[in-house]
Nucleic acid binder design. Sequence first.
DNA 1: GTAATAGTGTCTATGAGACAATATCCG
DNA 2: CGGATATTGTCTCATAGACACTATTAC
Lengths: 244, 244
Amino acid sequence: MVEDSWVPPSVLLAVDLVILTLRGSRLHLLMVERGIQPYRGDFALPGGFLRDDEEGIVAAAHRELAEEAGLAAGTVHLEQLGVYGEPGRDPRGRVVSVAHLAIAPRLPEPVAGTDAAQAGWWPVDQVLADGFRVAFDHRRIIVDGVEMARAKLEHSSLATAFCASTFTISELQQVYEAVWGVRLDPRNFYRKVHRVEGFIVPEGSSRKPGTGRPAKLFRAGTQVSLYPPIVRSGEPLMSERTLE
Amino acid sequence: MVEDSWVPPSVLLAVDLVILTLRGSRLHLLMVERGIQPYRGDFALPGGFLRDDEEGIVAAAHRELAEEAGLAAGTVHLEQLGVYGEPGRDPRGRVVSVAHLAIAPRLPEPVAGTDAAQAGWWPVDQVLADGFRVAFDHRRIIVDGVEMARAKLEHSSLATAFCASTFTISELQQVYEAVWGVRLDPRNFYRKVHRVEGFIVPEGSSRKPGTGRPAKLFRAGTQVSLYPPIVRSGEPLMSERTLE
DNA sequence: GTAATAGTGTCTATGAGACAATATCCG
DNA sequence: CGGATATTGTCTCATAGACACTATTAC
């Protein structure tokens, strides 16, 4: 019990973004180099405080996505990852951050962002490697985000968020291989994916210029949760570090 | 870009608890009746604002768990569920709530809480049924919490949190049946659970007074994530509503 | 003995992974 | 045609679920 005069404490609310995408065959992450204290010179996740009292959390996440990564709302998958708000995580005061996981399709340009010229894509293994200086508790957030993506690949259609609006089966396979860090059998993967209800739907034939037989094209189906699931398996690749 | 004089807005931070337990063979949830406006007379999740600027979020959740449910920290499983903080969810102002999922073992007493005499356990189906008045956006939080519990039963050892420190296989089975709302074959369940690495470890023999052959006792193993998983299946029980 | 629950054995259909074989493009 | 990738087929092994059966208690 507390006295009637007691008023609850207030905190600063921020959003942080773990933005994942595929570049080549490796999983990448957007990081921005901090130009001011604290953690000046270290790398941090894109993010920031709520603009004002009326701004929703989802809206703030989308705004940062646009400002710092140049990604429009319709382009990316966005979902909540968790809250990081223990006292002491930010030397500037009591800051509570709502971390989000964002998945972007393959992007040609390094970063089209406006706010942060110093933003750039980094291989996830490299960011998580020893010696890479990450600000605040963002290393933990990244680990949690990547693990969430890995887990959701099994039971949800999240993988299609890494692809363009239409894609081939082998492009989809590359997503699984990069995120899980495994190598999969293309033939078994092909049938496995086809067996899942409403995961992918045919979208005409391809005319990709690549060598070999042209692949059929598909787009994401309406189904969000996958049944049967795409179970994680296959042989893990050597070291997460030495991946090319 | 914003002017230098701009300061970020601050919000009120709260924690809310979806506390699940088994009573009889049904999944129950702790709800408190609101004695003040807003939503006076409706039922809400246990929870409240942070006590002060120094209190951690996890600490606040444990404090509410003790105050409103009489549950000590060591007794219950607690984990973060999500953040609910869109503007307008609380008429008193900008309140951001960190929702938690808590799992309590079977409890003899209705509620041993101190703060809220009006707290009580309710069957989840009943709370979610039409006509049951739930305050704020707590219905959504409950739905999300129950779904999270259902999902985590497959891949984590969460089910053991519903049991006492030692338990029989059939008690563990009751957890799965109640949370999933399905009926499982005891013989297949028995072997399935035994196959999972480090899920359960033998703990002497039982001397339960029940009729029939006494069951062996087990306690939770150290393993948190289950492999192979306990896959959800079996025939759904009739209606969630008519469950006894 | 019977009733009741605990625990074991066995069968079968299904599904995953290994891998051969075929198809369709480019040059 | 050969090289490369896509797609289909087939085999085998593991396992999930159905269900008969045995074990151990209370009465």
